[in-house]
Write a protein that binds this DNA or RNA. Structure first.
Length: 391
DNA sequence: TCTGGGGTCCTAGGACCC
DNA sequence: TCTGGGGTCCTAGGACCC
């Protein structure tokens, strides 16, 4: 039996935040623009290609960006706008296949294997690219390959507005010469260690003989990376993987370091308020609450606590935030504070489950029905009341 | 280059249950 | 009284990505 190759597209929106701004205001197309960086401590999330010509890059701080490109226009992040364009983008893609996985707000994987209808995949890729420019003024790069990893690597090769096909037989010619730091999954911590043992390109990794040494650098994921370097990846394009959020958080780096306890507490309260708003918007409830504290020496602690019940209630959550902070006091000035919640689930399922599954065992055993009712009120009262009032 | 903010996934140890 | 192995959940930290 002949084994059928899959046809996977990876589609990446080029300089996405900047492209959205230019799509809204065509005048900006003539200018070098950067997005983000509201304070001196801020960095740019992205820059358009006019600014990139000057050497401006994402994650660059505003000071350096202005030094390289004095005329750069810095715009604040407008997440609502980008969400709008992201939805348009994915809606257009969904005309071509039912199997789409969101990689993030600005990239997606398409499994086109059974959706080409006799057309050449390259023609379809071209059509998608042209339509996104014509209909929404959004430039994309597309990688076409037999698996997700290769498609992802391929889409990165020609930017902006590129289409790159990466077939199995082209791996040695196209993939192997790429620098190892460009391999998806290899970051700035692993890359220097790989270089240290003589691996400079993806080809070097594929052909590396001393697996004992390599294991020290890559750990348990060694085989996965070797396979990928050979173009082998069995990942499946999974719709909705990205949609079901695993955590919701807010964090902020302050203009000046925070020295006072009382000041930190006010900031934590503000962060908690934002997080709770988003949890409610998302119609979720959470069980685990975490704080993040980064000191001015850049050391960082994360502390979390898991409640016995799910909640969306500000006071339930803030009480934990404050206790976690109190339990981990330090004299060091604070640069960043963050609050996040995880162990999320749909708030409707929480509501349904309350009286059926989530009754504390000890309440039943020890004191019978009246105690049970009290316990429910105690644990879920605030949530129930909120639910009742809502909408 | 004095270094953001939103996330995900992985690992490893400990507690606890059976 | 001593002791097993598996499974799951929680916590902390680290690496990575956009």
């Amino acid at each position: 039996m002949e084994k059928k190759f899959k046809i996977i597209f990876h589609i990446d929106l080029n300089a996405f935040f900047a492209s959205c701004e230019m799509a809204e205001d065509k005048e900006l197309k003539k200018l070098p623009i950067g997005i983000g960086g509201s304070s001196d401590r801020g960095v740019l999330t992205t820059a358009n290609y006019n600014a990139r010509k000057f050497g401006v890059k994402s994650a660059m701080n505003v000071y350096d960006a202005k030094r390289l490109c004095p005329n750069i226009v810095i715009l604040p992040v407008n997440f609502d706008l980008y969400s709008k364009y992201s939805t348009l983008f994915f809606n257009l893609l969904s005309e071509y296949t039912d199997i789409i996985e969101k990689g993030s707000i600005d990239e997606g994987y398409l499994d086109m294997t059974d959706y080409c209808d006799g057309r050449h995949p390259l023609d379809i890729a071209e059509e998608i690219q042209n339509r996104l420019v014509e209909e929404y003024d959004l430039p994309v790069s597309i990688g076409v390959a037999p698996n997700m990893f290769l498609a992802k690597m391929a889409s990165d090769i020609k930017k902006p507005l590129g289409i790159t096909v990466l077939r199995k037989r082209e791996i040695k010619d196209i993939l192997w010469p790429l620098p190892i730091e460009d391999m998806f999954g290899i970051g700035k911590k692993t890359y220097p260690n790989l270089k240290l043992i003589g691996i400079k390109t993806i080809g070097d990794l594929a052909e590396y003989k001393d697996h004992r040494k390599l294991k020290l650098v890559l750990g348990n994921r060694m085989q996965e990376f070797i396979d990928k370097a050979h173009g082998i990846h069995n990942g499946v394009v999974t719709p909705h993987r990205y949609v079901d959020m695993k955590s919701i958080g807010n964090s902020s780096t302050y203009m000046q370091d925070v020295f006072e306890y009382s000041e930190a507490i006010i900031k934590l309260e503000k962060l908690t308020t934002k997080v709770v708003e988003r949890v409610k918007e998302d119609e979720s409830v959470c069980k685990t609450i975490s704080i993040q504290v980064r000191y001015n020496d850049f050391t960082q602690i994360n502390r979390s606590y898991t409640l016995e019940h799910y909640t969306e209630n500000f006071y339930d959550i803030y009480e934990v935030v404050e206790r976690l902070f109190d339990d981990n006091q330090s004299d060091k000035p604070i640069r960043l504070l963050g609050v996040s919640v995880s162990n999320l689930k749909d708030s409707q399922s929480n509501f349904r489950q309350l009286d059926i599954f989530n009754i504390p065992k000890n309440a039943v055993k020890e004191e019978g029905v009246m105690r049970l009712l009290d316990s429910i009120n105690e644990n879920y009262g605030s949530t129930l009341i909120k639910k009742g009032v809502k909408k």
